[in-house]
Amino acid sequence: MSVDPTQSSSVAAADAADATIGGVSSAKRAWQFFLPLAIFVTLVWFLYQGLFLNPREVPSALINKPAPAFSLAKLHAPDQKFSPAEMQGKVWLLNVWGSWCASCRYEHPFLNDLAKQQVVPVVGFNWKDDPAAAKSWLVKYGDPYQLSVSDLDGRVAIDWGVYGAPETFVIDKAGMIRYKHTGPIDAKVLNETLLPLIRDLKKAS
């Protein structure tokens, strides 16, 4: 290729002009590339988190509200009534269970363990159950409850916002609901969530 020098310099000048404009547009191009990428990554992060959320876990509307009052017959003494007011001044648990409930059987050994530790009284809330079946269930698997009450028609459970068994409420000394665990309790829930919370609530006056 034989190129005369004047012509080649004009081509070089055009190249230089192109480069400066190219510099501006490459910053813009980077922006056009990274903005959608950032949006995509954010979306993926949220969707990924969503994989590990439990849609069945509906946050309770009763947290930091007074425990709903009721008066229900005791499972082992149907002629006697129990009401939450009797627990005033104590930190206590209300555990919703039923002999028909499979997950309750899974969590039961952990409740038995908890009862052995004697850190907190647990009241059993026998939900829509046949009292005879409930009693024989407790004989078979152990009875961790200070007492159980029978909610035969599920009317009181509605007041507590119960929508499945097992559920466990933590009630403080003033009779306020401080925490609700939906689903079976296991060692992890007990040691990492419930017991520390109970300890804190007991310390508070």
Binding site: V3, Q7, V11, A14, A17, D18, I21
Partner: peptide, 17 residues
């Protein structure tokens, strides 16, 4: 516009060449 003009010039130069 000048960018487009410059590339046109360059193209013309190359073609002539």
């Amino acid at each position: 516009k000048s960018k487009q003009v410059s590339s046109q010039q360059r193209a013309r130069a190359l073609l002539d060449d």
